[in-house]
Design a protein around this nucleic acid. Structure first.
Lengths: 347, 347
DNA sequence: AATTAGCACTCAATACGAGTGAGTGCTAAC
DNA sequence: GTTAGCACTCACTCGTATTGAGTGCTAATT
């Protein structure tokens, strides 16, 4: 069977209508609502063909058709025309980050909120991939005897801290000394670049201060590289409650408990990434069991040609692809630009 | 009408049964399930009285009775016996904080998780009220020309940071100088104690460095005191999905969108606080519209006789009060002890 | 050969009515 | 004061139409 012009138009009509109404759509509806110049009977015949080809399916015999995953796939690949942003939306994106926003964390946060608000689905924003941000400052603060806090500030504005155990006899002066050595050695470096050579340099530097040497080495080897840089900003989780497909509490529970598990959420975005541009995963194309009746639209953001991370929107397969693709694309470009401004602005 | 012994027993039976089953309970059920030594008919008569008195109500004519808010109130005030913790639960609370947990934030976090897990409702944990924690360290880091980050470490282990604008010509050396003055003046002080006298001291100290004086004063006056210390840890939000009263998505939506609004959540815990011990708010006793068919059980935690904050559990009015009261009480005491250990342990 | 009108058929959804059962209130007897 | 008995209520559950949107097939039409 061949996919001719008319079949395409009918498939398009079915998908558009279904995205709108969330109801199975029948031949009558199409012939009434869309001016295709043929009768319902003809449409019925074509629909039977489309079903044979696997693009649409029937929930039950006497119902209309709904798009299959394959149908959506054909739609986004061949039929869909991206929706233009309204001026309002364009404005919202453009003004999303007032210039006073300088912290990367804050930028990502706003990105998530905007994505969720513009699409009415759930937004996911990944922090920039480790290895791009560099250490700006390291500080050790004595909290109590035998306890210190280590604070690592990245040039992105990210701040990480953790409490660590130290020998009882270490003083704040000792810590200051270590801090200054660490700062001298690590400033401007990425986490990934902390290598043995550096550790040797530290060793050499502090060799005469045996009491703090071990601590310094430990920090270098274990504590600092373990600073976690990746995090997912989740926004608009509750938007799914507005979708008719989630009117039953059990489905909500499945999805929400997935989104509660941070590592699983990370996996969702950590798909082997297909280069630049917008990626669409439809239903069972998603590897995670729990979102196999959802679709994800993602896009990477970057500086130059270095990909930093991914942003995405998660919604039911019956999602407004035409719109979401535009929004995600536009937001990812804007995010790239904004990060470039912030990070290149620094030294 | 008088509340005699038997009425009490019947009310108690109704409430226990309803808490268990979430179904209206009838006279037959009571006479069968609870050995009161009287017939269903007698119970019916008593129930009619209890209804007149406002303690129970009927959803519709031919249904059993359910407790009214007033009924629950009478129950928790006069009838309820606190449930003992199981050994398991007691163990969980006791071991909730292994000794390696030294950060206040982490302690509060675990408190929330434990509360939610033990009760199967939603847990709310307020951070210790400003004014108790003292400044441990202040650090200024130059991020870019005209931009710096200010980091404030409290003795509780809380770390706050924000990006601020500074004059273009300020160098890291200038910032270090300010840092050291600020540290000298502020270490060991609470946020609340930053007063004009201190600012004058700074002024005196830095008078000869005109270029950084303004910045230092601004930090002291505006930036540092505005460090936000209060936050609510929310845990087990999705536990409400397991409650039959939230089987319909619209109710879920109302509650979840309330819990999304941080300031409203703060208000919930910020009720004028009734001294020590456990406080119970039932249904319409809550001031917030959205939780008028929920109950809140809260308790304060403190060091010595200084109240630091509140923890609480939010569930449907049909909540297992006997158990939750015990858990909340026990957790709040344990939290007080733990914080005491951490905070008094420091200098 | 493609299209369409017509028709029989399917089946979820809705409506309806009878039956069930848990519950009540009232009354009269204990 | 308590209880047995009874009539009554009313949500709930079935099973049985009824409806209506939808289909597939066939035969007539273009």
């Amino acid at each position: 069977m061949k996919m001719d012009e008319r079949k395409q138009q009918i498939l398009l009509a079915i998908i558009k209508d279904y995205i709108d109404t969330a109801e199975p759509v029948g031949s009558r509806t199409i012939s009434r609502r869309y001016k295709l110049g043929v009768s319902a009977a003809t449409i019925r015949n074509e629909m039977a063909d489309l079903e044979d080809m696997g693009f649409i399916e029937q929930p039950h015999t006497s119902a209309g058709r709904i798009p299959s995953n394959l149908g959506y796939r054909y739609y986004v690949d061949c039929l869909m025309q991206r929706e233009q942003l309204t001026e309002e939306e364009e404005g919202a994106i453009r003004n999303g980050y007032e210039d006073k926003v300088r912290e990367v964390g804050e930028v990502l946060n706003r990105t998530g909120r905007l994505l969720a608000n513009l699409t009415n689905y759930t937004a996911l924003v990944q922090t920039p991939r480790m290895g791009i941000s560099t250490v700006k400052h390291i500080q050790l603060v004595l909290m109590a005897s035998g306890q210190a806090m280590i604070i690592v500030v990245m040039d992105t504005g990210a701040v990480n801290h953790q409490i660590i155990s130290i020998p009882e006899n270490i003083t704040q002066q000792d810590l200051d000394q270590i801090s200054s050595v660490l700062n001298a050695k690590l400033q401007g470096r990425t986490m990934g670049s902390i290598r043995l050579t550096l550790i040797k340099e530290i060793y050499f530097e502090l060799a005469k201060h045996r009491n703090i040497l071990d601590l310094a080495i430990e920090l270098m080897k274990d504590k600092i590289p373990s600073v976690k840089e990746d995090k997912i900003y989740l926004e608009g989780v509750f938007n799914i409650l507005n979708q008719p497909e989630f009117h039953n509490v059990d489905k909500v529970k499945v999805l929400l408990s997935l989104l509660e598990q941070e590592d699983k959420v990370k996996d969702i975005l950590k798909q082997p990434n297909q280069g630049l541009g917008v990626t669409i995963k439809i239903g069972s194309e998603n590897s995670q069991q729990e979102i196999q009746d959802c679709s994800m639209i993602t896009a990477t953001y970057q500086i130059g040609d270095r990909i930093l991370g991914t942003i995405g929107v998660l919604g039911p397969t019956r999602m407004d692809y035409a719109k979401v693709v535009t929004v995600v694309d536009s937001m990812s470009r804007n995010l790239s630009r904004t990060l470039e401004r912030i990070l290149k602005g620094n030294g």
